[in-house]
Computed example of a mutant assay.
Amino acid sequence: MKKIALFPGSFDPLTNGHLDTITRGAALFDEVVVGVFVNTSKKSFFTPKEKVQLIEASVSDLKNVRVILQEHDLTVDVANALGAKFLLRGIRSVKDYEYEKDIAQMNQHLSPDLETVFLLASPEYSHISSSILKEVIQFGGDVEKYLPPVINQAIVEKRDQNE
């Protein structure tokens, strides 16, 4: 049986930390599906379609990774529709663990056959988040070393358009 993992998130923007989790997940699973979900409580830097295109460009060298857009369904329902038996999640800190543990337990309740797999963030990425990077970007700071090149370029272009 093919081992499929769904890596859900809002990915606004996708960071090198996310990319590291995807790359490591791709070595563990037959297929990793990056699910771009819409988080209505966050103000997005990129549109959902822009995120999909940018993530596809960022993972193009990973042959067992694909990207989907999901705007309305529960994560467990998307996983089940994909035939995924695993949810892939990255953990940067104890705070992340507490948050992710609660979600994993609810997902287990909703879909008992779905297993959440946590990967600890690589040390060089454990202090970054999309939210922190967006804050730095908003005030003109340089975050290039924390982003895949295609995403950094898109941010620079978007920032230049808005000036």
Rank of each mutant, 00 (worst) to 15 (best):
S130W: 03
L147E: 01
G140Y: 10
L74D: 04
S44I: 06
P112H: 13
V65S: 05
P112Q: 12
E50G: 12
T40S: 12
P8N: 02
L82K: 09
G140K: 11
L54P: 04
R92E: 01
N39L: 08
A84F: 09
D12Q: 08
D12G: 06
L69P: 07
Q138V: 01
V150S: 08
F29W: 08
P8L: 04
E100Y: 06
M1D: 07
I22E: 00
D12T: 10
V52L: 07
L74P: 06
P123K: 14
L133V: 11
P149D: 08
S41M: 12
N80P: 00
E98C: 07
S131H: 06
L119N: 11
F29H: 09
S130M: 05
N152S: 12
D73W: 14
L120P: 10
K3H: 13
E50I: 10
T21F: 07
G83Y: 09
A27P: 01
V156P: 00
S10L: 00
V150L: 07
K101G: 02
V65P: 02
F118V: 11
A81G: 11
K158D: 01
V136G: 01
P123F: 11
N39P: 06
I132V: 15
T15Q: 03
I137Y: 03
I137S: 01
L74T: 08
Y99S: 10
P149I: 03
D30M: 10
A121F: 07
R89Y: 03
Q105K: 13
I22A: 01
L82I: 08
F45R: 05
I55G: 02
P48E: 12
H72R: 14
L88A: 05
H109Y: 15
G9V: 09
D77E: 13
A26L: 10
H127Y: 14
D77R: 14
I137V: 15
S130V: 04
K51Y: 06
A104G: 08
D160Y: 03
N16Y: 00
K51C: 05
F37A: 14
L119R: 09
A121R: 09
L54C: 10
A26G: 11
I91S: 03
